[in-house]
Nucleic acid binder design. Sequence first.
DNA 1: CCCTGAAAGTTGTTGCGTCAACTAATTGCC
DNA 2: GGCAATTAGTTGACGCAACAACTTTCAGGG
Lengths: 163, 163
Amino acid sequence: MTFPVPRMSPSEAEAWTGLIRVCMLLPAELDSQLQRDSSMTHFEFAVLTFVRWAPESRASMTAIAEATNSTLSRLSHVCTRLQKRGLVEKSASASDARVTEVTLTSAGRRELVRATPGHIETVRRLVIDVLSDDDLAALARITRILGERLDPSCRGDGEIPGQ
Amino acid sequence: MTFPVPRMSPSEAEAWTGLIRVCMLLPAELDSQLQRDSSMTHFEFAVLTFVRWAPESRASMTAIAEATNSTLSRLSHVCTRLQKRGLVEKSASASDARVTEVTLTSAGRRELVRATPGHIETVRRLVIDVLSDDDLAALARITRILGERLDPSCRGDGEIPGQ
DNA sequence: CCCTGAAAGTTGTTGCGTCAACTAATTGCC
DNA sequence: GGCAATTAGTTGACGCAACAACTTTCAGGG
């Protein structure tokens, strides 16, 4: 059961409580699987994956932060921990001494390669494989709309027109 | 931009990254609004709301934990804090001395009533009002499927049949 | 040049969530 | 009726995230 929501029609409440339930449970499940099988959080996995596929397998803190919807503060703490664990290297950029460039160590790449299949399998088991192609397409469309409304970087477009 | 996902078709990756993005951003936005306007987290709001609409405005820890998809431990910490802030009362049940029954104080009810309109308005602004009726119905259906796969209380049905 | 302001990160504190260990009460059963 | 097993909940320690304050570096204007 989910909690009741006042001032909302039944169909609206159903969509809302369903969404919020997924938002609570899915990240927890992803963290749980990655923590159990690979000793890393989903956020750490996302950081490592982004760096791996970046040009030259190298990315600035700001680029990673934007890609992962996180703050520089959070990312800085996480990269410090990843560095202490020997999974990434931090180095000052040659062209701009302010920017910190992050690269994977060989151990970091190895751990990531080892963690990826289990994560993908989990994503398929929990989401992809339980939905039809139509549902998948609808989910992509709906989450794109919601994401654009939510993303802080898209907030420069002034007040919401209409209501 | 979201991070790349290996071993997944473009349409699958779009649905997946879209969903995970919403799962990261939406709870943060809800917490932010409630914290700013009413000095409470979304989870605290959910707890107070569930108690308010429970029979006799009274609920056991276990009932609240199930309704909010949380653990007893987390809930216990939160209710202790809510009690210290004077928003709820805890009392032992008359019929079973193990169960703790939670009720709202008058201050708790007042704060909840004050917080609700802003929260509902936020939910409408971020989700309900940006989707068509068809999208809303699709979202309800999709999240119901995902929620059933995710909910720990539905895990007793053995392994996933087929693949 | 120099100086103001902005950009890029870092660091410390504080608060919440998780995990494991624990207490207390109740049910089942022999 | 007494004892094991289960249920309900609490507590303490540890880890991660948010927020604010700070440092350092770069760009632009006088």
